[in-house]
Structure formats: structure tokens, C-alpha cells
Amino acid sequence: MECKQAVSLMHDYLDGDLLSEQANELKSHLEACPDCRAAFRRLEETEMMLFAANRKSESVAVSEDMTDRIMSFLPQPKKHSPAWSWVRRHPALTAAAAFILIMLGTSIGFWNADTQLVVRGSDLNRVQVEGNTVIVPEGTIVSGDLTVERGELKIYGDVEGNVTVIDGSAYQASTAHVAGQVKDINQAFDWVWYKLSNIVSEVAYR
């Protein structure tokens, strides 16, 4: 074995990862080579002194108030509101809630967007419109349903179906006769349901 290789093995030995076979090779080389023996001893001493010199007897210590100093330097802890942590814990529910909110939002948007009187029905010829008022005159018969949005409905005659008033008012004279139901929808929420069930039935009948 060459001395150069022996030195490399000495370092591996000090690192604690010398295989037993290599250890034997190194040992026989050291027995034969006084220079390497001396070099090995000095390396071992160096290793010991390196560890010893840096041991905890180190007199330099960090300032006693270091912990306090660091703690005072820290930025304020990020505080998540309970709502936010709920959102983080329930992503699926949050997505569903967001979807419903957006749907409601757009529906309400539509609801706010319309300001004009709307009259719907299958038999509108017999219905009179005066300004914002829809009149079913006495003696006339309106076949089918009648829907009025944002207006007043005055019924003196007959309606052979359901009557729906959205965001308005319905007046039924003593002579009036409505075969179906009279529904008065004033709130956005009801309106949304009405709209939704309309969409559903439209889809269903297509």
C-alpha cells in the first residue's frame, strides 16, 4: 500500500467508516511504515483537539435577553378568523355555498334589472292594460293562467286558471272569479323559487 492511500484510509478511520478489511490493510501498513505511524498519531491528536477545543467550555455566550429580544421582534401571529378556518376545513361545502350564492346573486340581479310591467298569459286579448294596471273587466273570461309582474291587477271578471302577481298587488272585486290559485309574490326569495320552478318546468316540457 502506498502512503498516500494509507492517509486516505486514516481519514476514513477517523470518520468512522472504515471497513474491517481496509482496517487490516491500514494496520499492516502502519506496522511497516514509521512515517505513517507518526502521521496517524498526529491526525488522531488533531481530531481529539478539534473536538476538545470547541467543547461547551466555550466562554462566549449569547446575550441572556436573546429570547426576549427575538420574541419582541417577531411579527404578530397571523390570526385566522374562525370563518376563514372553517372555509379551510370544509372546501367542498364552501364551493357549494359559493355556487348557491352566485346563483342567488344573478337571480336577484335579474330581479332588480326588470322595472317594466310584464303580463303573461295564454289569453291576453281580453285583458285591458291601463298604465301600470292590468284589468280583467267584468263579464270577460280569461282562459288559462295570468301572471303580472310589477303592476296592479284588478279582477272583475273570471280567470280560468292560476293568478300570479309578482311585486305588485292583486285586487279581486266581488264579481271576480278565479278558478285556480291566487299567488302574490313580493320577495326576491319567493321570486327565485318561482323562476327556478319555471325553468324546471320549461326544461321538463321541452
Binding site: 429570547t67 420574541m71 417577531l74
Partner: peptide, 20 residues
């Protein structure tokens, strides 16, 4: 979770080693 004392504990554990 926002426990400042726990962080102070971490500081105490490592401040000397990092300082040296």
C-alpha cells in the same frame, strides 16, 4: 396555532447552538 410560548421554547432550545 399561535402559541408564542412554544416558539420561545424553540428559541431557547437552539439559540446557543446557532450563536456558537
Amino acid at each position: 396555532k399561535g402559541d408564542q410560548r412554544a416558539f420561545a421554547e424553540i428559541v431557547d432550545l437552539y439559540k446557543d447552538r446557532i450563536f456558537h
